[in-house]
Amino acid sequence: MILENATIITAMVTPFNESGAIDFAKLPQLVKHLLDNHTEGIILAGTTGESPTLTHDEEIELFNEVIRLVDGRVPIICGVGTNDTRDSVEFVKEISAIRGIDAGLAVVPYYNKPNQEGLYQHFKAIAEASDLPIILYNVPGRTVASLDVSTSLRLAELDNIIAIKECFGLDALTELVEKAPKDFLVYTGEDSLAFSNKAIGGQGVMSVASHVFGTDMHDMFKALDQGEIKKAASIQRQLLPKMNALFSVPSPAPVKAVLNHLGISVGELRLPLVSCTSEEKAKILSILDL
C-alpha cells in the first residue's frame, strides 16, 4: 500500500514571489526542509497550499516540479477535488497520467451543500474516473457540508478509495478506525488530534504543524509505537499550544510567517487571504519560542 509507512504527511504551503506568482526557485529548500524533518508524504494544492487561488496550469506545473524534486522518496498526494463533480473527474483523469503522483485528495464539495447521497455519488464518480487512488477529505469548517461517518464507511468499501483525512473530531475518527475496512487508512487533518488519532489506532496526521515540528511529531509517534505513553503524551502537551498558535489566524498565514522567520522563504499569501500582521506574527513566534 502506498501510504502504509506514512504517518506524518505534510500539506505543503505554496511559495509565492513578490508579484504573487508561484516561486518555483524556492521549492528545493522547502522540500528539503520537510524531508529532513520526517515528512513521510507531501500534499500539493490542498487547503494549506492555497488551492482555491491556484489555476489549473499552475497546479500541473507545481505537481511536476515537486515530483522531480522528491524523486520517489515519499508519496505525492495532489488535490483533485472541487465543488463541480464533472470538473473533478476530468482533472483526476488528467493527472492520473502524470508519473509520480501516488494519490488524489478529494475535498467535500463546498458551497453547493449536497446531501449525503450527493456526496457519495460525487466521490464515487471521482474514484471510478481513473486508477489513481483517492483520499477523502472532510473539512466542514471550510466546506459547510460534511461527510457523515456512515457515508465515509460506505465510500471506504470502494476499491479505489484508500483513506480519509478527517477533520470533524475524535468521535468521527474513533468510529472510522473501529468500523472501516482494515486496509482503509484513517488520518486526522487536525494537528491537535495527532496523538489521539494514533493512540486509538489511526494511521497518523495530514499536517500543517509538521512544517515546523515534524521531528517532534515523529518522536511522539515513535514513543507511542514503543508503548512509551507518558513520553508521547508529554510531547503532545508541549506541542499543543504551539499547534494552536499556527491556526490563530486563517491558515496558512501563521505557518508561512514562521517559515519565513526561519529563513525558509515562502513569500506571502494570495487574496482573499492576508499575511499576519506584525503583532500577530510576534505573538505566534513568542508562543513557539522562536
Rank of each mutant, 00 (worst) to 15 (best):
T10D: 08
N5V: 11
A209G: 13
V139P: 09
E157A: 13
F63Q: 09
F63R: 00
H38R: 11
G81H: 02
Q236A: 12
R154H: 13
G141H: 12
A127T: 01
P114L: 11
V108N: 02
V108Y: 00
R270I: 04
P109E: 03
D289H: 15
A257S: 10
I235H: 01
A97W: 00
T14G: 11
R68H: 10
D84M: 08
N244V: 07
V13P: 03
H33W: 15
I43E: 04
D183F: 00
L246S: 02
I235V: 13
P272A: 12
Q236H: 15
D57K: 09
P28G: 12
V144K: 08
N244A: 11
S265M: 06
M220Y: 11
A209T: 07
M217R: 01
I42Q: 04
S286T: 09
L224V: 03
F195C: 04
L27I: 10
L35K: 11
E279A: 15
D191F: 09
I76M: 07
N64F: 05
K113I: 15
I135R: 04
E190G: 12
A156R: 00
A163R: 03
L147N: 13
S207N: 11
N160F: 06
I135P: 09
A106P: 04
S210D: 14
M243N: 12
C167N: 12
I8R: 03
V212D: 03
N115K: 10
H261Q: 14
S150R: 10
I8S: 06
L34K: 00
D171H: 05
A233W: 01
G202R: 03
P114K: 09
A129N: 00
I287D: 07
V255Y: 06
V205S: 05
T7H: 14
L35Q: 14
F63V: 06
I284T: 09
A199C: 05
S146W: 02
L239T: 10
K230W: 05
L262A: 06
I60H: 05
G72M: 04
L69F: 01
T10G: 08
G263A: 06
T151H: 09
D84R: 00
E279D: 15
L147H: 14
E190W: 03
G267E: 01
L54D: 06
E61L: 08
I60P: 05
R99M: 08
V255S: 06
D191K: 01
